[in-house]
Design a binder for these strands. Structure first.
Length: 317
DNA sequence: ACCTGTCAAGTCTGG
DNA sequence: CCAGACTTGACAGGT
């Protein structure tokens, strides 16, 4: 079995490589039209070029898994701004897509926690739809929209989880089917446990992204190992390797916060459970030190008996 | 060159 | 019912 590792957004090993440069609405309002446009264009171009740099870096280091920044286009979804980023930057999105396809990179987006389909407030759902369309538009401009995924959480509980999930069922179906098809759901660290998220995934035929750190923070009644058959089943139709998230708690007291690196001893029970299950897995590292943390974990893991590094970001078990 | 406050978003808690 | 906490990288503005 193969374990592939990836990281999120910024390759910290590269100089000045943020793909998330932005312009806030407050500052946008202060500027005249020309300056606004200049700033929006400059930030977007840099973000896209830094995404290209990250992809080259990934290829060079053997990372086959990468989560792109959700902040590639500043103010793309703001109702008072909403500018056309696809026409002027189509060629860069295309270049990114070509790079992804040529290198068989597995990419995804992860909209923020404000994109959710459980809210009783209509405008919240509308904003979430707008945000999902924004992410999907970018994937389409890259021409990877049939392959790349958009990962979200279920949302809030509002004191009544059952009612909230009914709203999810209703609101999520307002999305275009082709967007729904690329969506994955992840268990969160406070509200929806792995088992609850898995149920919703099964209901909507969505792949389930299991986050180990969230699971320990919000475990519910189920053991990770017991969920694996159902979890893998949600990916069956996609022909993709199931995807997992892995991070370490910053400390026992600030358990939910992410640490700089992934502690090997923290990660081993998770990795060993996957090993016992015996099927390949793609693991997204969500640590403050990003690519450096992913490389460090792979390095440390390769020294454990039974794990062989076959590539910068890949382990054979 | 650094530090501090502000910015976006929605939910949840405490008062 | 309302204010503040939560979260996080980036940026503006001040020193």
């Amino acid at each position: 079995m193969i374990l592939r590792f990836g990281y999120v957004s910024t390759a910290l090993s590269l100089w000045e490589a943020s793909p998330s440069r932005t312009l806030t609405f407050t500052n946008w309002k202060k500027l005249d039209e020309n300056t606004c446009n200049e700033k929006l264009y400059a930030a977007t171009e840099q973000n896209l070029r830094n995404t290209i740099r990250a992809l080259h870096y990934n290829i060079a280091h053997g990372f086959h898994l990468y989560r792109m920044s959700s902040s590639l286009v500043p103010l793309a979804t703001h109702p008072e701004v909403r500018w056309d980023y696809l026409t002027p930057f189509g060629h860069l999105f295309k270049e990114i897509g070509d790079l992804i396809k040529n290198s068989a990179m597995r990419v995804s987006f992860h909209p923020s926690q404000f994109t959710l389909f459980t809210s009783p407030k209509e405008p919240v759902t509308e904003n979430s739809i707008t945000d999902m369309i924004y992410h999907y538009n970018m994937l389409r401009a890259m021409e990877v929209h049939g392959d790349a995924t958009i990962n979200i959480h279920i949302g809030g509980a509002y004191g009544d989880k059952e009612a909230a999930i009914s709203r999810f069922d209703h609101n999520f179906n307002k999305l275009n089917p082709s967007i729904r098809k690329q969506t994955t759901l992840e268990n969160d660290d406070k509200t929806y446990t792995a088992e609850e998220t898995l149920q919703v995934c099964e209901q909507h035929s969505l792949p389930f992204v299991f986050d180990y750190h969230h699971h320990l923070a919000n475990p519910g009644n189920e053991e990770f190992a017991d969920l694996l058959p159902r979890l893998y089943a949600t990916w069956q139709e996609t022909n993709k390797t199931p995807k997992f998230h892995l991070s370490s708690p910053r400390s026992a007291t600030v358990f939910r916060a992410h640490a700089e690196y992934v502690d090997l001893d923290f990660a081993l029970p998770f990795i060993n459970t996957l090993k016992s299950f015996g099927q390949s897995a793609d693991i997204m590292i969500e640590a403050k030190s990003k690519d450096k943390a992913a490389l460090k974990l792979v390095e440390e893991l390769s020294k454990v008996r039974g794990f062989k590094r076959i590539d910068g970001g890949t382990i054979m078990v």
